[in-house]
């Protein structure tokens, strides 16, 4: 094969790849618009929404509990190790709480939910797709986006702030255990300092982020499920993509959201 032919082949491959990415982007946009349209169209399926909230919220609580208590405790301990050298260990409380409220609670809850619920959404919808259950819904005249995607997306949007709130409270408790009970910082000082440095804007930032992450995890998980092709292998691939893209999206969007919210809050 000549150099010219190799170069031509590379250009063709690149073109194919770009076209595939553009098609994927178009499909995702189309899916997003459809789910938004069907969110506001009756019937409003509140029972399905509560079922999804129960699944995502209640069943993620234990793993959120474990993640948050150790995150709060370890973070408090690390700050103590750094700050005691400059006699600033009384600042452990506000630093941990602010970090939890603005970043750690929404982001780590997002990663947990993307791993647990994003994967479950893709697997459930994907297996329904390959066994023609989605076709069965459509033939009955039921919109599959409205029946399957909308409750999951809204469920994730509503569950995420609650899980993030739980993360914040338990994480604070973990840091309090280390700060007050282990390191023996005065309890009054520990909590008073939090009151001095924290404000409602910081809590709002966490809630906004958690809601946005919930939406992104929901839309990515359901999109991957609806786009499953083939059999069991396709379901596995879709599930994997839901987790990978869910986690990457949470981390990337967090950066831009932080920059944006810093200007308005």
């Amino acid at each position: 094969m000549s150099i010219k032919e190799i170069a031509e082949s590379r250009v063709i491959d690149l073109g194919d790849s770009v076209l595939r990415q553009l098609k994927g982007l178009g499909d995702f946009t189309n899916f997003t618009l459809k789910t938004i349209f069907w969110t506001f169209k009756p019937p409003f399926r509140l029972k399905l929404l509560f079922e999804q909230m129960y699944f995502m919220g209640n069943k993620s609580v234990f793993i959120i509990f474990l993640t948050s208590i150790f995150t709060g405790a370890v973070f408090a301990f690390q700050i103590y190790l750094g700050f005691k050298a400059i006699n600033a260990d009384s600042f452990i409380g506000p630093i941990v709480t602010i970090a939890l409220a603005k970043e750690l609670a929404p982001v780590l809850s997002g990663l947990v939910v993307a791993g647990r619920c994003g994967a479950a959404m893709a697997a459930q919808i994907g297996s329904m797709k390959v066994t023609e259950q989605i076709d069965a819904l459509e033939v009955m005249g039921i919109n599959s986006y409205q029946y399957l995607a909308v409750p999951r997306i809204l469920g994730a949007m509503l569950s995420m702030p609650l899980l993030s709130g739980i993360f914040l409270l338990i994480g604070y408790w973990g840091s309090w255990l280390i700060g007050v009970k282990v390191i023996q910082i005065d309890e009054m000082m520990y909590t008073q300092k939090i009151g001095e440095f924290m404000n409602l804007g910081m809590v709002a930032e966490g809630i906004i982020k958690a809601t946005v992450f919930g939406y992104l995890i929901g839309i990515i998980g359901t999109y991957q499920g609806f786009n499953v092709t083939g059999g069991a292998e396709g379901v596995g691939k879709g599930t994997n993509m839901a987790v990978v893209w869910g986690m990457i999206t949470v981390l990337v969007v967090d950066f831009f959201l932080t920059s944006f919210l810093a200007k308005i809050l």
Partner: peptide
């Protein structure tokens, strides 16, 4: 319409 699918497509 009523429809019977190849593998029944019952909601699992």
């Amino acid at each position: 319409f009523g429809m019977v699918f190849q593998y029944a497509a019952l909601f699992d």
